[in-house]
Simulated assay, not measured.
Amino acid sequence: MDFPTLAQALVDAGRFLSSQGWAPATSGNYSARLADNQVAITRSGRPKGRLTTDDIMVVDGAGQPLTPGQRSSAETQLHTRLYQQFPAVGAVLHTHSVECVALSRWYQRQGQDSLILTNYELLKAFPGITSHAMEVVIPIVANSQDMPALADEVLTQLAHVPYPVGYMIAGHGLYSWGATVAQALIATEALEVLVSCALRETRLP
């Protein structure tokens, strides 16, 4: 798709994610792959429920802005490294829901570095998952402000995952993706619901 089409798709995604309470304040960032190793991505500090296409900018494959004076998220490398590692990924969405933040912190305190989802019918929303009985592993990595190191850790963890569809940063939020913005949005919504289910199960006797 061309930049105007992808920019509008990211704007629409932001409005939906914000409406669900998954993008409080100015949190989150969204991107989509363009041609020539370029990436359309949200500009830093923009409320995601009120995005316009002017809030979408273009960076190169290393995350550097193509237009002087524009600034993307500090987490831009977490997007661009995924595009480099996984050619099938066409869009990446990052949310900050209460459920993902709470569950990731709880798992971290328990010494667990991944959430294993199984026996949920909604798992079939993900590519390659054909049965509720299959397992989807969501790595949970420690938060860091060192983006290159954090990206390295994410890719190391994802290398061991059979069907990589997302990961969580403890106390921070969820990253998920798909071949298109629409598919990334489906994956994000499914993961947010599944994480909410997993969190509620931790509270059951």
Rank of each mutant, 00 (worst) to 15 (best):
residue 2 D to T: 06
residue 3 F to A: 08
residue 3 F to W: 13
residue 4 P to C: 04
residue 5 T to R: 07
residue 10 L to T: 07
residue 11 V to S: 06
residue 12 D to L: 06
residue 15 R to K: 06
residue 15 R to C: 04
residue 17 L to M: 13
residue 19 S to D: 08
residue 21 G to A: 08
residue 21 G to S: 03
residue 23 A to L: 15
residue 23 A to Y: 03
residue 23 A to K: 05
residue 24 P to Q: 06
residue 25 A to G: 08
residue 31 S to H: 01
residue 32 A to I: 00
residue 33 R to F: 01
residue 34 L to M: 08
residue 34 L to Q: 04
residue 34 L to V: 15
residue 36 D to A: 02
residue 37 N to W: 09
residue 39 V to W: 12
residue 39 V to S: 06
residue 42 T to Q: 12
residue 43 R to L: 15
residue 43 R to Q: 15
residue 44 S to E: 08
residue 46 R to E: 13
residue 47 P to N: 11
residue 48 K to W: 07
residue 50 R to D: 09
residue 51 L to Q: 00
residue 53 T to S: 15
residue 54 D to Y: 08
residue 54 D to I: 10
residue 56 I to T: 10
residue 56 I to P: 01
residue 56 I to N: 01
residue 57 M to S: 11
residue 58 V to F: 13
residue 58 V to Q: 07
residue 59 V to C: 03
residue 64 Q to C: 03
residue 65 P to H: 02
residue 67 T to K: 05
residue 67 T to Q: 08
residue 68 P to A: 12
residue 68 P to F: 04
residue 68 P to W: 04
residue 70 Q to V: 12
residue 74 A to H: 03
residue 75 E to R: 06
residue 80 T to C: 10
residue 80 T to N: 00
residue 82 L to D: 14
residue 83 Y to I: 07
residue 84 Q to R: 14
residue 84 Q to Y: 03
residue 87 P to Q: 04
residue 90 G to T: 00
residue 91 A to I: 00
residue 95 T to I: 12
residue 96 H to L: 01
residue 97 S to V: 10
residue 99 E to H: 12
residue 101 V to P: 02
residue 103 L to D: 06
residue 103 L to G: 14
residue 104 S to H: 02
residue 106 W to P: 01
residue 107 Y to A: 11
residue 107 Y to E: 10
residue 110 Q to C: 12
residue 111 G to L: 11
residue 112 Q to W: 11
residue 115 L to E: 09
residue 117 L to P: 05
residue 120 Y to C: 03
residue 121 E to Q: 01
residue 123 L to E: 10
residue 124 K to E: 13
residue 124 K to L: 05
residue 125 A to L: 12
residue 125 A to K: 02
residue 126 F to T: 13
residue 128 G to T: 04
residue 128 G to Y: 05
residue 129 I to W: 06
residue 129 I to M: 10
residue 133 A to S: 11
residue 133 A to I: 10
residue 135 E to G: 07
residue 135 E to C: 13
residue 136 V to Y: 05
residue 138 I to P: 15
residue 139 P to D: 03
residue 143 N to Y: 03
residue 144 S to I: 10
residue 146 D to T: 00
residue 146 D to A: 14
residue 151 A to K: 09
residue 151 A to F: 08
residue 152 D to F: 02
residue 153 E to D: 12
residue 154 V to I: 13
residue 156 T to G: 11
residue 160 H to N: 11
residue 160 H to M: 13
residue 161 V to Y: 14
residue 163 Y to M: 07
residue 164 P to G: 05
residue 164 P to N: 06
residue 165 V to Y: 01
residue 165 V to N: 01
residue 166 G to N: 02
residue 168 M to Y: 05
residue 168 M to I: 09
residue 169 I to C: 11
residue 171 G to Y: 05
residue 171 G to N: 01
residue 174 L to T: 10
residue 177 W to L: 00
residue 178 G to S: 00
residue 179 A to K: 05
residue 182 A to F: 01
residue 185 L to T: 01
residue 188 T to R: 00
residue 191 L to W: 04
residue 192 E to A: 00
residue 194 L to N: 05
residue 195 V to T: 14
residue 195 V to A: 01
residue 195 V to P: 13
residue 199 L to Q: 14
residue 200 R to S: 11
residue 201 E to Y: 08
residue 202 T to H: 09
residue 203 R to S: 11
residue 203 R to A: 13
residue 204 L to E: 06
